[in-house]
Design a protein around this nucleic acid. Sequence first.
DNA 1: ATCATGGAGTTAAACGTTTAACTCCTATCG
DNA 2: CGATAGGAGTTAAACGTTTAACTCCATGAT
Lengths: 331, 331
Amino acid sequence: MATLREVARRAGVSIATVSYVLNGTRRVRPEVEARVWEAVAALGYRPNRVARGLRRRRTHVLGLIVPDSANPFFAEVARGLEDASFAAEYRLILCNSDGDPLKEQRYLEVLLEQRVDGIALVSASAAPLHLSTLQASGVPFVVVDRDLPGLEADCVLADNLQGGYLATRHLLERGHRRIACITGPSDLTPSADRVRGYRQAMAEAGIEPPDLWIRRGDFRAESGYQAARFFLSLPPGLRPTAIFACNDLMAIGALRAIGEAGLAVPRDIALVGFDDITLAAYVIPPLTTVAQPTYEMGRLAGELLIQRIQERGRPPARHLLPVRLVVRQSA
Amino acid sequence: MATLREVARRAGVSIATVSYVLNGTRRVRPEVEARVWEAVAALGYRPNRVARGLRRRRTHVLGLIVPDSANPFFAEVARGLEDASFAAEYRLILCNSDGDPLKEQRYLEVLLEQRVDGIALVSASAAPLHLSTLQASGVPFVVVDRDLPGLEADCVLADNLQGGYLATRHLLERGHRRIACITGPSDLTPSADRVRGYRQAMAEAGIEPPDLWIRRGDFRAESGYQAARFFLSLPPGLRPTAIFACNDLMAIGALRAIGEAGLAVPRDIALVGFDDITLAAYVIPPLTTVAQPTYEMGRLAGELLIQRIQERGRPPARHLLPVRLVVRQSA
DNA sequence: ATCATGGAGTTAAACGTTTAACTCCTATCG
DNA sequence: CGATAGGAGTTAAACGTTTAACTCCATGAT
């Protein structure tokens, strides 16, 4: 692949001049400039971003670490971040931690060695070991979706507390009193906050939910299925008439368990999910759920990150994005 | 961030020696080696992969271009590819073309400028303009999911023809004769091949499907919804009793249209999809579909690509991965 | 004693850019 | 007409590695 040197030779100028033309960083006589562009075209020259990155000490590459980019929620976040990156001429390196702090740590090191200009992190755990590595490195970063308490950094979160509250209020307003909750991993802030919202709404209605109504899942469909089966196995007097699942995947798992038990949603059991993934609208019955601005979170994270790269001093900002109840037919 | 030079100074050796220790490329006296490692640890040294990439002319970075990484199918492919990359110490740059050949072209150029060691491409169209760019660049690449006919290159495809055939046969065996088909964009090989499989099975059963039964979609749920509404609007004598949708998203759209019309699946209309996305098992009724080894396709593509990077001469291989009918309850 | 041998370190060039500093020339002004 | 300023090109250093080639020294063979 052609280099600056070859272009320069063909155009009969020095490599510096070529560089100035390419970057528009200094005035060059139109006639000379034309010769340069001609040579560039003739040789099919493409600037070497690796060399540029080394010299400028800016790679224009960002890193994104998510637990699992195949999960529709993170996939959407990643998409938003990629779009923001592309728009600002940044590239994106994708990393999957599988929720494993060790793998996350490994990826973090890789990204630092790769000299990315910034890192967006959806953390695998609430208190990652390697946080100090990240902070010490001085590389700009932004925390997305899962808060890391006690950390001074840009972050982009959904208003999960409000979301849990809205979902539960909706069920209460429909006359339900025995409302169960399928949680996510409890050390992660999104799940914890949604459950807090649930408890708050219940408390306001004067209900103290027994432990039996609160079942822990892992954000995957199968765990929602299992939790719902558990609820259905409770004696009639204790059995919930409604379920708030902390994400749509688990809600859809619950849907299946309810269907298999020969019961109907929402007639026998009402159901509210969280996330509003694309398919929530397409299951039967369409799922009432709390929509997060997922794509928007990714995009905002990207914009924030790029902004911070360009202006390091800015004090860290915490963005709490509004959620919204999407009423469909499952409750 | 510390450099080789600083490590060398601290260990009291030349930078070459440090490099040899780090890479294990030459014998170094144990005593000296220990001093080097000590200095590395003390300074928290991390090799600069940008500099290494420039010097070695190998970046250990791959590029992946997909139409939309938020689409569950491509997300899964991307995941497989990322895993294969990580396992072989490669990084992955993610690019979304939005199915737009121009954006795809732009990304291709970006990746070439970034000097990626290889490119995996899920093409936006059947005959991309920029193919020659790619071939001329000499960068190893692999084509995934969508074939580019007449191209000498590694490629990884699912056996779409067989898939369409299996799906249709299944419906025929259940006694259906009026079987409709919701296609994808017809210039893309996956859709075209699935439709060919459908036609072949129909022909073997002695049925010549009228054009009314073949409706074009765009692989998104909404288009499946619209197509199904169209089928339902046909006069009873012409109305299909079964639908083969060329992907699950469209099948789920159809499911919704059928539900809204007050009909039941599979009692009134049977339905078979394609892809077996995670959620296919969770819609009601669970969707009978043709499973592709999606993740596996991504992983294989990654392995193939890395293999080719290491051994350029190897003749191109075409991999046709088997599909499998997953019988659930929608047909 | 001489000399090839090989081990273990160093020197320096190269990878392909960017950019500060320099040169040379022309135009302008007093 | 001499001084000077500014325009437009060039030179060369730097970014942080890798690696070929070199040096130096101890060892062992002759």
